[in-house]
């Protein structure tokens, strides 16, 4: 089972939820930090580095002696990663998504591909848990390519929890695509609700079963709860606004380790998520009949 933790708004508690869930899973579990622009789950799960590998995307290299400046490559590239002039072509590797289309459309076969590094994937082992994190190089922009590479490292035999980037753009879609369940973390503020709605639209579009965790309850009002009720979205758990949680977080401690009172709620969240996943499979089967 793949459980993704996402949110429209940043700073609602995705990493807190995913890292603590992974800890209470109490069995072999994989935690995948998909927030490759600023992976931070490793701060809470101090493990030993098991492996590190480079991730590259294939970018075009133009043989100037063959290029006639016909422009087929640049008109094909929707990302404008290759410009074509009478004098030849100019490649912008940092804009390239590595699709290989330019080399296919070049009538002179002047384009070959070469690897362009975008980041690394690091695997940490801590207890029975495996933490996989993508780390995008500074200046690199192809977060989705790195997320795909990191997801390819997941073992299908073991359950996985995915900590995703905030927002609803390409990297988030890449991260949650093919997840069995998405937990959307929000906070009971106007901003929190606004971005929750965007995130709900996203998971509905992708047709992924989803539930909501409302974090920092007491810091705002009732709006997130009301929205979920009116839209028939299950609220899987609520966590209160608690200074002790913030203190533990600031020291890189897991709440379930430092504040035992929160162990049970996280265990409940995990079991509710599993139940919800099971029931969504059953309703799917029912729909198929």
């Amino acid at each position: 089972m793949i459980l993704a933790v996402a949110s429209g708004k940043g700073g609602t508690g995705k990493t807190t939820v995913s890292a603590n869930l992974a800890r209470v899973a109490g069995q072999h579990v994989q935690l995948l930090d998909c927030d490759v622009e600023q992976p931070n789950a490793h701060l809470f799960l101090k493990g030993t580095l098991h492996s590190r590998e480079e991730v590259c995307v294939p970018v075009p290299r133009v043989d100037e002696s063959l290029c006639t400046g016909c422009g087929e490559c640049s008109s094909f590239c929707r990302f404008h990663a290759i410009a074509s002039l009478d004098t030849g072509a100019i490649v912008f590797p940092e804009l390239c998504h590595g699709c290989g289309g330019c080399s296919l459309v070049c009538p002179r076969k002047a384009i070959t591909e070469q690897d362009h590094r975008i980041g690394v994937i690091e695997i940490f082992k801590t207890g029975s848990m495996t933490l996989i994190q993508g780390k995008l190089d500074i200046g690199a922009a192809m977060a989705s390519s790195l997320i795909r590479a990191a997801k390819a490292r997941l073992s299908r035999e073991i359950s996985a929890i995915l900590d995703t980037p905030p927002g609803t753009s390409c990297p988030v879609i890449t991260a949650i695509r093919d997840a069995d369940l998405v937990i959307l973390v929000t906070e009971p503020t106007p901003f929190g609700l606004h971005d929750l709605k965007l995130a709900v639209d996203m998971v509905r579009e992708l047709e992924i079963p989803h539930g909501v965790v409302i974090n920092r309850v007491g810091s705002g009002d009732d709006r997130a709860r009301v929205y979920c009720r009116e839209n028939h979205i299950p609220v899987l758990m609520e966590f209160p606004e608690d200074r002790e949680i913030a203190q533990a977080y600031s020291k890189g401690e897991l709440i379930v380790d430092t504040l035992p009172v929160y162990r049970r709620p996280f265990e409940n969240l995990l079991s509710k998520s599993l139940e919800f996943h099971q029931s969504s499979i059953r309703s799917d089967e029912h729909a198929d009949l």
Partner: peptide, 15 residues
């Protein structure tokens, strides 16, 4: 409304 590379494309148009 190009997602990226608007300057590159515009430069080709001007060229």
């Amino acid at each position: 409304n190009a997602p990226q590379g608007a300057g590159i494309q515009s430069a080709q148009i001007v060229a």
